Simulated assay, not measured.
Amino acid sequence: MSADDKYPPESGRRRFVKGVVGGGALAGVGATGSATVNSLTSSTGTGGGQTTAMAIELTGGPAPRGMPQIPIEITDDGYLRGKWPEVTTITQNGVEITVAQEDMAGDVTYSGEWFQYCGMEGYENIQPEYESDNLFRSAPGGYDWQSEEYETGEQLHVDSFDDYEEWGNGIGQDGMGKPASANWRSQDAEDTLTATVIRSPLIEEAAQEDEWLAASTENGFLAWLNVCTHFCCVPGYKKNEESSRYDAADGVYCQCHQSVYDPFNIVQTLFIARPRPN
Rank of each mutant, 00 (worst) to 15 (best):
M54I: 05
T196S: 13
N169L: 00
P275Y: 00
S39H: 03
G170W: 05
N278L: 06
I72L: 15
G168H: 07
W145S: 06
L225G: 03
E166D: 14
T52C: 03
T109W: 02
P275A: 02
C256L: 13
M54K: 14
G175M: 06
L26D: 12
Y110K: 08
D188N: 15
Q155G: 00
E241S: 14
I97H: 11
G175N: 08
H257W: 03
V99G: 09
I72K: 04
E102P: 12
I56D: 03
D250L: 08
N226V: 02
P64R: 10
S43Q: 11
A248K: 08
E149P: 01
C228P: 04
I56H: 00
V108S: 08
P277F: 03
G220K: 07
S243F: 09
E113G: 01
C254S: 06
G28L: 12
R15G: 03
I171L: 13
A53V: 04
P140V: 11
G94K: 10
D163G: 05
D133K: 05
T192Y: 00
T109S: 13
E10P: 03
I272T: 14
Y7F: 15
V21R: 12
R185S: 04
M1L: 10
G168K: 05
A215P: 13
P62V: 08
Y110F: 15
R199I: 02
Q173T: 11
T196Y: 06
G22L: 00
I90C: 07
G142N: 07
E218F: 01
N240G: 00
R276Q: 13
K238F: 01
Q258S: 15
R137Q: 09
Y143H: 10
L80A: 03
S259R: 01
T91P: 08
A214H: 11
R199T: 00
Y123H: 09
Q50N: 14
I56F: 00
P128C: 05
A182I: 05
K6G: 00
D247H: 10
E124A: 14
P201D: 02
R199W: 02
S111P: 08
W114V: 03
Y150T: 08
P179Q: 01
C256V: 10
K238S: 05
T75C: 01
K178D: 02
R15Q: 09
E10F: 14
P64Q: 06
N226A: 09
E242G: 05
T196D: 09
Y237S: 05
N226K: 04
L80W: 02
V17H: 12
D250N: 15
A180G: 11
D262N: 15
F161D: 07
M104R: 14
T269P: 04
I171W: 12
C118A: 15
T44P: 03
R13N: 13
Y246K: 07
S138D: 15
P85E: 11
V197Y: 01
Y143N: 11
P179G: 02
K83C: 11
T229F: 00
M120P: 04
W212A: 13
A35Y: 09
M67L: 07
Q255P: 10
T88V: 10
D210R: 05
T192A: 03
A27K: 14
Q155S: 07
G30M: 12
R276D: 01
H230L: 00
E86R: 13
I266M: 12
Q92V: 14
A139W: 06
E10I: 12
A207M: 08
N278W: 04
F231L: 15
S111V: 05
